[in-house]
């Protein structure tokens, strides 16, 4: 994935979509961190999971506060 990932182009497009002004001075550092994140994403993608594997955070509707 990493070699195909144009981090600068992605950063510009995603920032525009998210309404995040991205100063060109910050772009190299942002792209560097996105490429690092892409390597982490590759590791995460490599772990076999099934549709039964739910996300870690679990919504709780209410809890009874102990006395």
């Amino acid at each position: 994935m990493e070699h195909e990932f144009d981090a600068e182009a992605y950063a510009k497009a995603a920032a525009a979509a998210a309404g995040l002004p991205l100063d060109p001075r910050h772009l190299p550092g942002v792209a560097l961190n996105l490429r690092l994140a892409a390597r982490m994403a590759e590791i995460v993608e490599a772990m076999p999971i099934t549709p039964a594997d739910e996300a870690a955070p679990v919504y709780v509707v209410a809890r009874e506060v102990p006395k």
Binding site: L20, V30, A31, N33, L34
Partner: peptide
Amino acid sequence: TRDRFLAGALLP
């Protein structure tokens, strides 16, 4: 920290 936060705000 800035560029890491900016990148984090843009993750797929």
